[in-house]
């Protein structure tokens, strides 16, 4: 089946189609790709372990970690090649955090099969030593590349990136955190040094894409979706870098109807997504791969 019959390419490296026109395609799509990777993601869950209460003025009966588990299991049974990722601020927001300091959040993320998360500003709320203490409950990777922890208790406990091998695909994931000064008290983050996220992202993508040949590069960002000021955000980060395929964002609690598509330095499209907060939504992104060389003229089709 040659998809170019259906999809008019623009001649650029990436084609982009809105969702509506492709209904016909989805019926037979899973069979014709050689590999299929599913990414599930959350951000800013903020200790919302239970669903929002029935009398909640905005999110009545939504969310809940136990339902999220059911959903993740369903997706996994359909496609075992699934990565589960989070973009930070798992901590703080309900008494579960005040009583247990993040222990239950990390234990549950482990049970749900999360592969990686990054460090949001609220992870520091009970101090940097508490992050180190709670990591004993985490069976997932805490990734952060632009916080220099070398003079802190987190030294050696947080990786800048991790490569996940999924059905022969190498998926490189790195984390980025927000500037802490003015947002978090220094006595909480102590000697954590904040490094320029754009420069660090360029370095991380060079390592993951050029040196380590990753098939896909994902950034877990707690920078925030978009600011009118010149403060760095996910949209700016996407435009100022190369080789990132997907930015899973957080911090601004942004509800998006669909992922944003941003052109990067090479003119390629980067997906930028964020799914609100509180565990109300889970984002799902499916990546389909073909063996290279089969059809050189084939372009990337993005249905969002």
């Amino acid at each position: 089946m040659n998809r170019s019959k259906f999809i008019k390419t623009t001649g650029a490296a990436t084609g982009f189609l809105a969702a509506g026109g492709l209904g016909v395609l989805s019926a037979f799509k899973p069979k014709q790709f050689s590999k299929h990777l599913t990414i599930l993601h959350t951000n800013d869950v903020h200790s919302h372990i239970d669903p929002f209460p029935a009398n909640d003025s905005r999110y009545a009966n939504l969310g809940g970690v136990s339902r999220r588990y059911t959903f993740i299991q369903q997706v996994r049974s359909e496609n075992p090649n699934t990565l589960v990722l989070d973009a930070g601020d798992a901590f703080q927001g309900t008494p579960y955090f005040n009583f247990y300091g993040g222990e239950l959040e990390y234990k549950l993320m482990s049970k749900l099969g999360y592969h990686a998360s990054t460090i949001g500003n609220h992870e520091f709320d009970n101090g940097i030593a508490n992050i180190a203490a709670q990591l004993q409950h985490a069976e997932f990777d805490l990734l952060s590349s632009n916080y220099n922890f070398s003079n802190t208790v987190l030294d050696g406990l947080v990786k800048s990136h991790q490569i996940y091998e999924v059905n022969g695909l190498n998926v490189g994931v790195f984390g980025l955190g927000i500037q802490l000064e003015g947002l978090v008290s220094k006595e909480l983050y102590k000697e954590t040094e904040y490094l320029n996220p754009v420069e660090i992202a360029q370095e991380q993508t060079r390592i993951l894409k050029q040196n380590l040949n990753c098939d896909l590069v994902i950034c877990l960002s707690h920078l925030g979706y978009s600011y009118r000021s010149d403060k760095i955000d996910d949209l700016k980060l996407a435009a100022l870098t190369r080789d990132i395929d997907l930015i899973i964002g957080g911090h601004t609690h942004t509800f998006l109807e669909k992922p944003s598509l941003v052109e990067n330095l090479d003119g390629r499209k980067v997906l930028v997504n964020q799914v609100g907060w509180g565990g109300i939504n889970v984002g799902r992104i499916d990546f389909y791969f073909d063996e290279a060389g089969e059809n050189e003229n084939e372009s990337l089709v993005i249905e969002v």
């Binding site: 339902r67 959903f71 997504n273 499916d286 990546f287 060389g293």
Partner: peptide, 22 residues
């Protein structure tokens, strides 16, 4: 064999009471 990304789809799933608790 070298792999080429050819297709991306996305959707957002609302976690509501239509999903059973575990």
């Amino acid at each position: 064999a070298p792999q080429k990304l050819t297709h991306i789809e996305s959707k957002q799933i609302l976690i509501s009471d239509t999903i059973a608790e575990n």
